[in-house]
């Protein structure tokens, strides 16, 4: 017997769609100077945020994003049932430390850069399932902690690959509630891990595009909705070249998203002046663009409904060296104006 709230193979349909009652976004200097600069709540220019390490700074940003969301919703930490969060540090430590200081029951998540969307899905499930009234979902990344962990020391003199993306420094948090005013989450499509044999850790767009395309196509098939049903389809951090690849792959499945498909990693930076190469990436990329710009577009009535797809590249520092290919994942969430 199929599950009562599931449609098709991978899509969840929420009976009482959870409401996004508030969002908080914190970004670094480069993001604040980008085209979406004004849509963020807080910008901190100093990569250390006045703390003693980048790791401390990332944790601070995550806490600040969560506190901003709480403040906007007029809630204290006691009013929240669960804190779902993840990041890119080893063993998602930024989230654990933020959870320590917030003191809210915590589930740590890892979906690489798709973590924020993974959190939205699990949060919505907890609420629609009746296990929670209010859930705080957050994710963070920091360009220096990510570079340090996955690539080279930041002051190392290397030429970045042209297809490489720039890890967004920042954190995004949203509060999901069973009732209230704000946009609602109506559907979610949980992605499969997809691997089309890419192995270049400097080109995540090509790595993740097949997973994003698979989830988007699966969503259309499961729901029977055509792409035109959405004002916008937006992936997490595929960047300029990854977006083109994903668009091509979606076309190969017989769906056309041209003209209504973009990517958070393209939106967040100015490609011509900010020297980010392919665009933005990292957990915070989809978190701050969704929590800031996209939700504001819904609230302003410029968008009625969008399909957001958080995308993640699944690797660690050693796996490419051991000859492994890099699989990707994409999680889709439908957010509607109400």
């Amino acid at each position: 017997m199929p599950a009562a709230k599931k449609q098709g193979l991978q899509t969840l349909v929420f009976q009482n769609p959870p409401v996004i009652v508030a969002a908080g976004t914190v970004v670094g200097g480069k993001e604040a100077q980008g085209p979406l600069g004004k849509t963020f709540d807080l910008a901190i220019d100093d990569p250390y945020c006045g703390e003693k390490s980048w790791e401390h700074a990332e944790r601070r940003m995550l806490e600040d994003a969560a506190k901003t969301a709480l403040k906007k919703a007029g809630l204290g930490t006691q009013g929240i049932d669960f804190f779902l969060a993840g990041d890119l540090e080893n063993q998602i430590l930024a989230s654990s430390f933020a959870a320590r200081s917030l003191g809210i029951p915590h589930l740590g998540l890892f979906g690489a850069c798709s973590t924020f969307y993974e959190g939205l899905i699990i949060g919505a499930v907890l609420i629609d399932g009746g296990f929670a009234e209010k859930v705080l979902v957050a994710a963070s990344s920091h360009c220096c902690t990510a570079e340090k962990q996955f690539r080279f020391p930041t002051e190392q003199g290397v030429q970045r690959s042209l297809a490489q993306s720039w890890t967004v420094t920042g954190a995004g948090a949203v509060i999901l509630a069973s009732q209230g005013a704000g946009p609602v989450i109506t559907h979610a499509t949980v992605g499969k891990v997809i691997d089309l044999g890419q192995s270049d850790p400097t080109n995540f767009g090509a790595v993740m595009a097949p997973a994003a395309a698979d989830t988007i196509v699966r969503h259309f098939q499961d729901t029977g909705r055509p792409p035109e049903f959405y004002d916008l389809v937006v992936t997490g951090d595929l960047g300029i070249y990854g977006r083109e690849l994903a668009q091509g792959l979606i076309g190969d499945h017989g769906y056309r998203v041209e003209g209504r498909y973009t990517d958070c990693g393209i939106l967040i930076y100015d490609h011509d002046t900010q020297d980010t190469h392919a665009g933005g990436s990292g957990c915070a990329c989809s978190a701050v663009v969704t929590g800031g710009y996209l939700l504001q577009q819904l609230q302003a009535g410029k968008l009625q409904r969008f399909l957001g797809v958080g995308t993640g590249a699944l690797l660690n520092v050693d796996s490419p060296k051991q000859g492994e290919t890099i699989p990707g994942i994409g999680h889709g969430v439908v957010i509607e104006r109400r």
């Binding site: 042209l162 089309l196 890419q198 792959l249």
Partner: peptide, 17 residues
């Protein structure tokens, strides 16, 4: 074959230094 075709596709799209 999918992997091979995808590799050719990415070769078209990827920027060249």
């Amino acid at each position: 074959i999918q992997r091979k075709q995808y590799r050719d596709f990415t070769d078209q799209i990827n920027p060249k230094p």
